[in-house]
Design a protein around this nucleic acid. Structure first.
Lengths: 190, 190
DNA sequence: CATAAATGTCAACATGGCTGACATGAACGC
DNA sequence: GCGTTCATGTCAGCCATGTTGACATTTATG
């Protein structure tokens, strides 16, 4: 800060420092963000992979296996391992798709929903605390930057409209034509 | 949270939606953020654990093994596996500490620094793109929210105003964040 | 009816966490 | 100066979760 007025080189240096800090912010935030759920999961003999499945199925009940695979970007064999544990132990149920009977639509059971709530309670609290402390305008900036970091347009879409108008979703020309879509309108792995 | 859809709770619902989006922004951003370095590492037969070591040592040359362990929050046995590969293959060197000869101070070789640059180039570019697209004010908001998400005060400290520093303070007990994936309780595959 | 798609499954392998036990040399306190 | 603690290394085995490849089943579709 003190020598910010130095010529040329220094600006570049600060830029590099700024980018490094961006990298590290992601690391620390993610690390702390996942720490507490991991501890809970351990009591169930589950890992982070189970958490991801429970979270996204809870988010989007009735999603297909293919959709889940597209989000997680893992192989079906990897998913299968955790998913069948969750099904066997009664956290998730699979129902044959009504339109396409090849599909297995995924739902949380009550037990699964309980666990989901337990797992995300701390995460929500953490986010809520950070949002509250930072303020609405900062939250909007956070969203903008995070969306910029996310690579695929399809992934960004999920944040378009279902947005929290509360503080977050503001104006910036996002305006994606498509009404707020309740669960289940998702990007198909084309 | 799944049953917050009750009528009349619209504000609460939006709040819940907003918090869920926060959770998902972290998931997707982190997923995409680590994808490309992983691809580079594969060509070297390395994984994320190697990336972390290279990143931190590059960030803070001369750090001790103990400091690195404190950053990564893994066991010395886990670190040993990757660190000795990096040393054996000439990416990292260890020098006996001048003040305390028990310590092994860590440095990148030229080869190591090359790899570090190659690995973080994409991550910096991704951050830079997101920052540029979002604007300075959004970046400030991003920083605020991310710092709010980070739990420990000691961790937040490293983002204070190190702008003029370049290297970590090399304080015992704590160090920097990094570029790969935060470890968790048990197993963490590449 | 033939083919493709959605899903499941078996088997093998790699990475990188973990624990426990034990070794070595250097620093430090008494 | 001796014993204890500290920093580090190492061996050995376990576990979670990623990977690839091959193949089976059911259903949709041209």
């Amino acid at each position: 800060m003190a020598d910010m007025n130095a010529p040329g080189l220094n600006l570049l240096f600060l830029r590099d420092e700024e980018l490094r800090q961006g990298i590290e912010l992601l690391f620390f935030a993610y690390r702390d963000f996942t720490a507490e759920p991991d501890a809970i999961l351990e009591k169930f003999g589950f890992g982070r992979a189970h958490h991801r499945v429970i979270y996204f199925v809870g988010r989007d009940p009735g999603m297909t296996v293919g959709e889940l695979l597209a989000i997680l970007r893992i192989t079906k064999q990897s998913l299968s391992r955790v998913l069948s544990q969750l099904v066997d132990q009664g956290f998730v149920v699979q129902k044959t798709g009504p339109r396409d009977r090849r599909q297995r639509l995924l739902y949380l059971t009550e037990k699964g929903a309980d666990l989901e709530r337990q797992l995300s309670a701390e995460q929500r609290a953490r986010i809520a605390r950070a949002y509250r402390a930072a303020g609405a305008q900062a939250v909007e900036g956070f969203r903008k930057v995070m969306l910029g970091i996310i690579g695929q347009e399809e992934d960004r879409h999920r944040f378009d409209q279902r947005a929290g108008q509360g503080q977050a979703a503001a104006q910036p020309g996002k305006a994606d034509g498509e009404a707020a879509e309740p669960p289940r309108g998702k990007a198909q792995p084309a």
